[in-house]
Write a protein that binds this DNA or RNA. Structure first.
Lengths: 102, 102
DNA sequence: CGCTGGTATCAGCGAGTGATGATGTGAGAG
DNA sequence: CTCTCACATCATCACTCGCTGATACCAGCG
């Protein structure tokens, strides 16, 4: 029982634009040009966020000629899901574990 | 299929201290004094974060005399877990859904 | 009551961070 | 080779947001 979520991943996903990117990438593998079209953000901005996502280990890059495709690493999301499930399960039993008033 | 995670909740959990608070509350129900001891943060700081967590619907307050106990709402965490599980499942099938290069 | 202790609210400060523009790099097309 | 296009990097600006101190509020106790 670790009952703790990786703060780094959550912090990275905390940005609305990055969460949007992740949601888009969960549907299909896309390259930067597609993401620029979908999100309306500037290419530079996207590239910055993609770097953050890459360094956090959430996405993988796959060069395809001049294009760079990004795809999610499902195991990271699955890990998050499991950690939150553990937290939820632990929280259900925590209602009775009330520490006494000092 | 919604395949999208609530950005507000993730944003709130993105802060390391708040994530720590949530992890602590998943173990036992605590009041502000306990959280001050556990985290070492100032009471004002804690109270601010608790307000954010409360407005995000992640925790509930339960007054007990002069003390205020906080407890997690497990359904929120369970919902997060499910949403991430959906994202992960969708991401597994997204590897083949590669949009053509423009 | 008045006092004490636990908690919430408010205003201000400063650091972290997202957005932008200019520029560099590298692969294909002509 | 050269030019173009996709993408990455760098420096900079602006702003959010977390932290802090002062203060107000509320409940119990004497």
């Amino acid at each position: 029982m670790l009952t703790s979520v990786d703060p780094d991943v959550i912090r990275v996903l905390g940005d609305p634009l990055r969460l949007r990117i992740v949601t888009l990438l969960a549907r299909e593998t896309l390259c930067t040009t597609h993401l620029v079209e979908e999100t309306g953000a500037k290419q530079t901005n996207l590239s910055n966020h993609m770097k953050v996502l890459r360094e956090a280990g959430i996405v993988e890059t796959e060069p395809c000629g001049r294009f760079t495709y990004y795809k999610l690493k499902p195991e990271v999301l699955a890990g998050l899901s499991e950690q939150f499930a553990e937290l939820a399960a632990s929280a259900r039993t925590a209602a009775e574990n009330k520490r006494a008033c000092p």
